[in-house]
Design a protein around this nucleic acid. Structure first.
Lengths: 314, 314
DNA sequence: GTGAAAGCGCTAACAA
DNA sequence: TTGTTAGCGCTTTCAC
């Protein structure tokens, strides 16, 4: 009756409602879930919540699921494979209604667990070619291609690249791949000392830039696979009196809040994690409702031209 | 038997384990919770997850609760009073084992709900004088006093203050209060045009600094109640060719990652949200285990001297 | 040691 | 329209 499942005589309704008030009755969602077989909880797994990218992703997810009275169970994997598996299992045990995974180690064991888990699932930040798992992602190769091509269009030819870690294909392989593809397409040589693998921190960008600067020749532009690293690059350059963009141009990737907060303001690829989160949540909700979903949704990207790239005058 | 509750004949154990393997049996945590009356889930409510302060707080909480096999239910209130109440009720319904609240509107209705909720509870970022609710917090007044006193010790006398929003007493009233107290203690006059109320964004810091610069006289130093606003201040100054710290000194508050990423690097008050989160989680776990808890734990603060404050030479 | 049964708080189905 | 009951998947208790 409390769920309006049946029509009820007004007098009775009133009496019940009064008692509910008086005793401070609160329904027990656990008991309800046991019989209804739904918890209205979505499990979200991220590698690192102190990274603004992932916290905005979470924000995007929350903004849509909370509309539909779902709430969020949050798992932080710390990029540790064991934790990833542990949480996948935990989601299952807790009878969660759906799962969104943001970045997971691309390993056989993991992917298999993902396939076997009998729960609606969306993976963001990875393409999973050949698997029947819905993903939402930017076209990292194309976006990196566009970023690099822009640098080239500005007259740069000696272009360095700091990629993400190779264990994360989207930020590692794909973004570096886009860079290589653009260089090749424009018949530009790649000096291998100019392409270095970074991690997901500002510090690693700082270090990577140092290594590039230790080369005999200096690039006139750098494409950096994440904004956080790009800020590290900017700081290395600032600390060593190398002017941006006069001496060297810097192109980031992600368009974090940080990018517009830095001075000079970072030119970068817009890759809105909030939108990711929204798209992923929408796909997941469709799955839960048994509506058709796209196997791979690609979220659009575009360049944000700010202050760190200048045209090269010959 | 699966929970090692009883001794079992090895032969039987083996047979059962084999079937478990074969059928891929997964325990149902919901059913278990219904009888055991514990969910091993902690509810966490934050106002804004895209703010690095709160995402690090969450990280701190997670780092301790995951040690003890608790997991996290995340609620984002968006600083909306209705959502705060809604989630408080939801926590109760979902039979969550404990709740950590980071910043909540300080209103009668809310505080009363907090008191009536029959769930272990810790509030961070607020002092709740006169209520029996355990809190963990820095001493905001003292920390702001220290920050301002440091500016004074460097020879500054014309010091401005950009506070947090007044609806949030810790960042608003308290931090502004510490500033006022320090000025008074050193017999320094406060020019009221120099104290302005900000919000929790870099943009609001930018705007606040503009207003201060529109005054007839200019301060030689600014104490800004949050690093995010302080970055806005730095950017305003940069964009208007006012040098930091040569022309004006800037003191932040929080020591976000951002603070060491900015150039010049921000001098600020260290106020580690990760530590907050850890302390809050520890207090909460103690409460859940019926161990004694502190009513108000104060987490220590200290100044981080970097590059944005210089001594004033007369 | 082992198996059977009661019951956690709810919903759904069925009688009255 | 209303009241009663079975059963969701587990733990706990109690008899065997």
């Amino acid at each position: 009756m409390l769920n309006n499942s049946k029509p009820v005589r007004p007098e009775l309704r009133e009496r019940v409602l009064k008692i509910v008030q008086e005793t401070g009755f609160q329904p027990n969602a656990i008991a309800r879930s046991l019989v209804s077989k739904e918890t209205r909880i979505i499990g979200v797994m991220v590698p690192d919540i102190s990274n603004n990218f992932y916290s905005n992703l979470i924000y995007g997810i929350d903004s849509v699921i909370s509309e539909y009275d779902y709430s969020m169970f949050l798992a932080i994997s710390d990029e540790v494979v064991d934790k990833e598996l542990k949480y996948l299992r935990l989601f299952k045990e807790k009878q969660i209604d759906g799962v969104i995974i943001a970045s997971i180690h691309f390993l056989e064991g993991n992917i298999q667990t993902l396939q076997e888990i009998q729960v609606p699932l969306v993976v963001t930040g990875h393409d999973l070619p050949g698997y029947q798992i819905p993903t939402v992602n930017v076209n990292n190769v194309q976006a990196s291609y566009d970023a690099t091509a822009y640098l080239i269009s500005q007259g740069h030819t000696k272009i360095a690249c700091i990629s993400g870690p190779l264990w994360d294909p989207p930020c590692g392989l794909d973004r570096m791949g886009g860079y290589r593809k653009a260089m090749r397409a424009h018949d530009l040589p790649i000096h291998e000392g100019f392409v270095v693998e970074g991690e997901f921190t500002a510090k690693s960008g700082y270090e990577a830039m140092r290594r590039i600067c230790e080369e005999k020749i200096r690039p006139t532009a750098v494409f950096v696979a994440t904004d956080l690293m790009a800020v590290g690059v900017l700081n290395y350059l600032y600390d060593h009196g190398i002017r941006v963009p006069e001496d060297i141009s810097v192109m980031g990737f992600d368009n974090l809040e940080l990018a517009s907060l830095s001075r000079p303001m970072l030119t970068t690829v817009h890759n809105d994690p909030f939108m990711y989160g929204k798209a992923a949540a929408e796909q997941l909700l469709r799955q839960i409702r048994n509506e058709p979903v796209e196997r791979m949704s690609t979220v659009p990207h575009h360049l944000v031209i700010r202050q760190t790239v200048s045209a090269l005058l010959k």
